[in-house]
Amino acid sequence: MKTTEAIKSEKQLNNDDEKSLRGTLVSVGFVAAVIVVMWVAVFWIYMERV
């Protein structure tokens, strides 16, 4: 059985973890944007030439 104190500190820890993942989310989002832009560009060139 966990004490209220323990649950609180666990939550706190998770929140800190989530905060530290912000940068990762932004980086992953940047990579995703690059992939989408490249895909759309290649798709557009293909459709231009059909």
Binding site: L21, T24, G29, A32, I35
Partner: peptide, 24 residues
């Protein structure tokens, strides 16, 4: 342990792939 942010980018990544595959 899964985090909300991890779930978010997994969903977005899979979503992007699915959209590409549906179009192609």
């Amino acid at each position: 342990m899964q985090h909300r942010l991890e779930e978010m980018w997994m969903i977005v990544s899979v979503g992007i792939l699915v959209v590409f595959m549906i179009i192609i």
